[in-house]
Design a protein around this nucleic acid. Structure first.
Length: 451
DNA sequence: TAACAGTCAATACC
DNA sequence: GGTATTGACTGTTA
């Protein structure tokens, strides 16, 4: 995993003799710069290491983040150790972050220094021969503390600020007495409805980088705060990007790895309760977009559109969008190897073509726009997912993914949700898409990208 | 200053 | 009870 020339040589192979037990093991403080800490779990983080974690990170050569997370997951599950315990004790992260990291590790070269930190910590932890024992010890301590609290033996001492309780008030009684200064500051979490998400997703497909105006229109029509819409776009772009990175990572992986990897990695960033079910029909990021024609959508149309001849402009705009997308993917194909649907690469072309993105979200032109075309209809790869030379021209074709009647029959999610065969089909489907896009980009087949 | 990376934490899911 | 998802936030970057 580490090159031999690495100044800091870490290896997945645990080596007892070449490491200071505490410095390469659990001895690193998760927050060397005095950042937010996780009280109650610092026992194992005595700052005995002469090198700070950041130095280690900076000196470290490339790590195989995928191998590390895979190994960590293995160790954790084999030893029945939870992500929360591991995250708070070893990484200084919360359970959700750990889950995220473990199921969707970014490639090393795509990580910032800060982003590399948890992986270095994981590597150090893996190198520690007593890693599991230490975590088990922590688990015991936690359990004891929990029992103490539970059976009323809790003093106001250190137990009360353990991670499991630190976000709460000391007790519900105190909270009800308004003695908790944070109880009123808490905002209720916004939970977007399925239709809102769908509308946002469609808007994203049309315009991954919406203008302020578009954002405001979206917000008002969906009755959301503009910040919520902005955040949604940020998050979605970010998670899209990561998803694409993961696909790339998988692409380079062996078939055996593919089979053994966590099913969650093929999930799209848009998965949630309802959509998880839809993912039976469509595994990856593009094909999982539930584009139902009958969904109520906000009418997002930029003002300029009103001044133009929509009928004539419509098809031209669609062509223009295809052209833009093509440019983006060609550029991508040349450098990082990222997928052509990466929003970063899309941005340049998107912006340069922004004036051509004036498409009503619920207009027929939107339904058949190439942006939506990219959301491949949810058919298994075995049924020829994409044909660059589909017979129907954009202006007259009906997008299959928009027609609920064309969806495969709905099946119980539990029947095949974890089916590795289906997963592989989906992955093959995605790879097929990407390769076709790249090939088409290289050949400049800008008008044949219809799926 | 917009977009980003990384993360938290509420909540849904298994 | 553990894990995954996701809206919101903070700090960084270009």
């Amino acid at each position: 995993i580490f090159s031999s020339s690495s100044p800091v040589s870490l290896s997945l192979e645990s080596s007892k003799e070449n490491q200071q037990p505490e410095s390469l093991g659990l001895g690193l403080s998760p927050h060397p710069e005095g950042g937010k800490s996780t009280p109650g779990f610092m026992v194992l983080h005595q700052p005995t290491n002469p090198l700070g974690i950041q130095e280690l990170v900076a000196m470290s050569s490339e790590l195989d983040t995928y191998a590390i997370t895979k190994k960590v997951k293995e160790v954790l599950t084999d030893n029945n150790l939870g992500q929360r315990l591991f995250g708070e004790t070893i990484l200084g992260l919360t359970q959700g972050s750990v889950s995220d990291l473990l199921s969707r590790p970014k490639p090393w070269h795509k990580l910032s220094l800060k982003g590399r930190e948890p992986f270095v910590r994981m590597q150090l932890w893996l190198n520690d021969p007593h890693n599991v024992d230490k975590l088990r010890a922590m688990k015991k301590i936690e359990k004891k503390a929990y029992l103490k609290r539970r059976y009323g033996l809790l003093s106001t001492g250190s137990d009360s600020d353990s991670p499991s309780t630190r976000s709460e008030c000391v007790s519900p009684t105190l909270a009800s007495l308004d003695l908790c200064p944070y109880s009123q500051a808490k905002k209720p979490r916004v939970v977007l409805g399925a239709e809102e998400k769908e509308a946002l997703r469609k808007a994203y497909l049309l315009e991954p980088y919406p203008s302020q105006n578009t954002i405001e229109i979206l917000a008002s029509q969906l009755k959301l705060k503009t910040n919520t819409v902005i955040n949604w776009f940020h998050n979605y772009r970010s998670r899209m990007r990561r998803e694409v990175l993961m696909e790339g990572l998988l692409d380079n992986d062996t078939d055996a790895e593919l089979h053994s990897y966590s099913p969650s990695m093929t999930r799209s960033p848009n998965s949630d309760g309802e959509e998880r079910r839809l993912q039976q029909l469509s595994g990856h990021i593009h094909s999982s977009l539930p584009l139902r024609a009958n969904t109520a959508l906000p009418h997002v149309k930029q003002e300029a559109m009103d001044r133009e001849d929509e009928g004539k402009e419509g098809s031209m705009k669609r062509e223009s969008r295809v052209q833009c997308f093509s440019t983006a993917s060609r550029r991508e194909g040349e450098d990082s190897g990222m997928s052509p649907v990466d929003p970063v690469s899309f941005k340049a072309s998107s912006e340069s073509c922004r004036s051509s993105l004036e498409v009503s979200l619920n207009s027929p032109s939107a339904a058949s726009s190439p942006g939506l075309m990219m959301s491949v209809s949810p058919v298994p790869s075995s049924s020829a997912p994409i044909s660059p030379s589909l017979p129907n021209p954009p202006s007259t074709s009906t997008n299959h993914s928009l027609d609920p009647n064309q969806l495969p029959p709905f099946q119980s999610p539990k029947l095949n949700n974890r089916s590795s065969q289906r997963r592989n089909e989906k992955m093959a489907n995605l790879n097929n898409i990407i390769h076709r896009l790249e090939r088409a980009a290289n050949r400049e087949e800008t008008l044949e990208w219809e799926f």
